[in-house]
Amino acid sequence: MAVVKDTAVAAPAVRAGRLSRLLDDETRLGRLMLAPAILYIALLVGLPFFLALYFSLTDITVGSRTLHFVGLKKFHEVIHTPTFKLALKNTFIFAFVSQLLVLILAKILALALVKDFRGKWFVRLLILLPWVAPISLGSIGWLWILDSIYSVVNWVLVHWRFVREPLRLLGILDPRMPPMWLGQPELAMASIITVHVWRLLPLATVILLAGLTSIPKDIHDAAAVDGAGFWRHLFEITIPLVAPIMIVAVLFGFIFAFTDMIVIYVLTRGGPYNSTQVLASLAFFTGIDGGDLAEGAAISLFLFPLLVAAAFIFLRIARRAEVT
């Protein structure tokens, strides 16, 4: 009896000791804490990626469970098609133009928001809204704005005289035939870029804002005393100092623009006649709707090596530019 009693008392103490030993052991605790993140990356990022990589080297379709390894055949097949080439070109235009605009606009917004003024919190809230709203809903709003019949923009162009008349006299606008935002190749590309910029701007602004506020005030004061005007201050002090964080923001933006298709899917589905087709949307139409999963995977992975290289270079630059 006495023995039993003893162990009963001792057990909780031992357990508590083990737990606290674990909590004290930083190496083991660290591994334990990291486990969920690693599991998440492995299951939700790694697995789909390697699956896609594997698919692209086979002849899988959405309806088949048996598949054969065909090597790079799918890549060879698809890269010579005009649609693929067009989509590749569109992808680059889309990514570069939208990133350039995001960068410039985010910079302007962040510079404005870093200043103190009345109602700043409200403006900050407004700017964040596009990021908070689900992108599908946001895109549908834009679909409406740019619609061929019910476009708000066109309504303004046609019904507001002081807008219509100057444009008409300049020969930019034909009130009987207002612009088809999603129906003319250049306008459609401009439209999806606009929506993409609208969508990414909040994040880029917030990142840059964080970068700007991390610059010590003394540095700005020193530059002011040293005689720097607005542009010199911007280009020689502010931008170089936020450069590392800006590069990371740009990298994210680029990868996002290269791999995302939701805006295009909702607004144009690649049209008119493939003029806004990007690799991501083409991959979806080919792989899921068209059924050739392997070719879809090949299309979507085509730029992967390029993106990895870009990420590597960007991060290197960011590290080199790092300042303390």
Partner: peptide, 18 residues
Amino acid sequence: AAIDEVFSTWVISTMFAQ
């Protein structure tokens, strides 16, 4: 299946539109 992929990847629509 081939007709379906032609259909789903908009080959014919694109041909006429272009």
